[in-house]
Design a protein around this nucleic acid. Structure first.
Length: 553
RNA sequence: GCGCCUGUAGCUCAGUAGGAUAGAGCGAUUCCCUCCUAAGGAAUAGGCCCCCCGUUCGAUUCGGGGCAGGCGUACCA
């Protein structure tokens, strides 16, 4: 049960009735009850009286006082005991303090629901496909992919927790120009290993790993391809792409991000593309100009129309992508989420337009842009280019600071802020890393549990929890379901992190001030019950983020 | 030129339904282990919320115009 939501709804309804009593049939603004920024102002607060001053032409404090009387009366009838007090404060806020009984109810719920606490049995759940990383198999995963992987995985967890069906998909771009360049780059190094001068492709891949792949081929096949390198190009392409895709899979495995589906570009055939183009043509969204075929994306707010078939008869990259997205909808997904890097943001109106042209709702596709992470090493910003082979791989970061820290660092900022990732700091001062703060709270709770031994908590008397800090912790736990819900709505995993930090902070504060293990056996039980709830909440939250939770540190 | 993102403490960032004295971590300065893990707690210092105009009873938040940084702007993928 989601107490935070219930209390708000009840308050909003209560206020609405009270407002109606004053206003009669006049239209009134939406009533919003939310947690005030400063917790000293109460658990929930409404500024409705301030909003009504202009309409009623009355002093806001006066209005608030009138409302207060009516609200108290209504609440007492509906949910006796939930609200401890209602206060009117200058310049006219109405503040509510939830009762201790409310806090105890929260704790009982957490203990009962355990691992599912905070989840939702949403009735109008969706069939969601979330596509992310989808890196070309032309090199190991970079830090940019890493952030996308962490975000996509966490979002998938959160959306599942909210009752949706979620499928995680990796789209494999294993054909096309990039792969040709990759194959030729490897071929060049292969020939060089035999002292032959090949042609290094323009824009070829320069990373050391390319040479490594060439040497592997040399070891496995010796000089088999030296005589006729031209007819071996396909082999080098396929070998390189397969090899690198495997590396990508291993990187993701180490990062503990798994996919439900690996979808190869090859599954989209030429006839699929032809079909979708003729479908769009029937609908009037395709026209010919300058020898090329154009998609009228301007009909759907794109800034210009886009070419789908070039004048030389070749498809642009966009054409198979339309077919791919049609394929996604055909597989029964009613909501698509794509996670891309900022270099693709110009592509959003185009793909959204295509989805709409195919008859889908504007909201049935959502593209999230995850901003880059700038890596600092030795105090210097590192430039990122897969082509030049100058990049920090995800694996490098994981090996240096660990998977959990890496994931956490990627998630701890808003998606749309550029993230600074200081390798030296994460490495050398790993103890100062924020993820440890939360993990440490969890470890401390385990430690107390161990020391206390096995105690039956089923008859714990929660009313012994009287300290301000204890009630504050319980109330904070009560906000968890709401936090996850808004995290899912806004598609921002960061909300969960920020919440967990707050809860951990409240726990550490309590830990420093009070002892759980005391001679008072009844109090011990009550406090064990409380910290058990903290533990459940931390565990549920970190699980959503895909970060592990140690019992000992 | 146009589009997207960003601009809040020395640094990295919260503040995503317009509200009350603008917050956290790191860094700095103090305290706190006879005590369930000090990877912690308590406290102090540190701010023209980039600038200007507008909407509003009220703007860090919304709108317009600037300035600065990053990215994008192909019949590339």
């Amino acid at each position: 049960m989601d107490f935070s939501q219930i209390s708000e709804i009840i308050l909003e309804q209560g206020i609405k009735k009270a407002v109606k009593k004053i206003m009669g049939d006049q239209s009134c603004p939406d009533i919003i009850v939310g947690a005030p920024r400063d917790p000293a102002h109460g658990d929930l607060s409404s500024s409705i009286a301030l909003q009504l001053t202009k309409i009623l032409k009355k002093n806001p404090v006066q209005i608030a006082e009138t409302l207060k009387t009516d609200i108290i009366e209504l609440l007492d009838k509906k949910i006796p005991g939930l609200i401890e007090s209602v206060n009117v404060v200058n310049p006219g806020f109405i503040n509510f303090i939830l009762s201790k009984e409310y806090a105890y109810e929260v704790l009982k719920t957490v203990e009962k629901e355990g691992g599912s606490f905070g989840s939702s049995k949403n009735k109008d759940h969706h069939n969601i496909q979330i596509e992310f990383v989808s890196a070309n198999p032309t090199g190991p995963l970079t830090v940019a992919h890493g952030r996308q992987a962490a975000v996509g995985d966490a979002l998938a967890n959160i959306l599942k927790f909210m009752g949706n069906n979620v499928t995680k998909e990796f789209y494999i771009n294993d054909e096309g120009r990039q792969i040709n360049v990759l194959g030729d780059s490897i071929l060049y190094h292969y020939l060089a290993a035999f002292g032959k001068n090949g042609v290094f492709p323009e824009d070829g891949y320069q990373g050391e790993y390319i040479k490594g792949i060439a040497l592997r081929i040399k070891d496995e096949y010796n000089d088999k391809f030296v005589k006729d390198p031209q007819s071996s190009r396909d082999f080098f392409r396929k070998y390189g792409a397969d090899f690198l895709l495997n590396i990508i899979k291993e990187d993701l495995k180490q990062f503990k991000v798994d996919f439900d589906s690996w979808f190869s570009q090859k599954n989209i055939t030429k006839s699929d593309i032809d079909k979708v183009l003729s479908l769009l043509k029937e609908k009037g969204y395709i026209y010919q100009q300058d020898g090329a075929l154009w998609f009228k994306s301007t009909d759907f707010n794109d800034e210009k129309d886009r070419v789908v078939v070039k004048s030389d008869g070749q498809f642009t990259y966009f054409a198979p992508d339309i077919a791919y997205h049609k394929n996604k909808y055909e597989r029964g997904f009613d909501k698509l989420i794509n996670i891309w890097g900022p270099d693709h943001h110009g592509y959003i109106p185009r793909i959204t337009a295509a989805a709409q042209a195919l008859g889908h709702d504007h909201d049935a596709i959502k593209v999230l842009i995850v901003q880059l992470a700038t890596i600092y090493k030795n105090g210097q910003e590192l430039s990122m280019s897969t082509r030049k082979g100058e990049f920090i791989s995800l694996k490098e970061v994981m090996d240096e600071v660990g998977e959990d820290v890496t994931k956490f660092c990627f998630l701890m900022r808003n998606l749309d802020t550029h993230l600074d990732f200081d390798l030296d700091k994460a490495k050398e001062q790993s103890a100062d890393n924020p993820v440890y703060y939360i993990q440490y709270a969890h470890a401390r709770i385990w430690s107390i549990h161990e020391k206390a031994g096995a105690i039956d908590l089923s008859k714990a008397d929660l009313s012994l929890l009287k300290e301000e800090e204890e009630i504050a912790i319980a109330k904070t736990i009560g906000v968890f379901p709401k936090t996850v819900r808004s995290s899912a709505e806004k598609l921002e995993p960061f909300f969960v992190i920020s919440y967990l930090n707050e809860l951990a902070s409240k726990f550490h504060n309590f830990y420093g001030k009070y002892k759980v293990i005391t001679d008072d056996n009844e109090l011990l039980k009550a406090r064990l019950f409380l910290i058990d709830c903290v533990k459940i909440c931390l565990a549920n939250g970190l699980k959503l983020l895909g970060v592990s939770l140690p019992k000992k540190m």
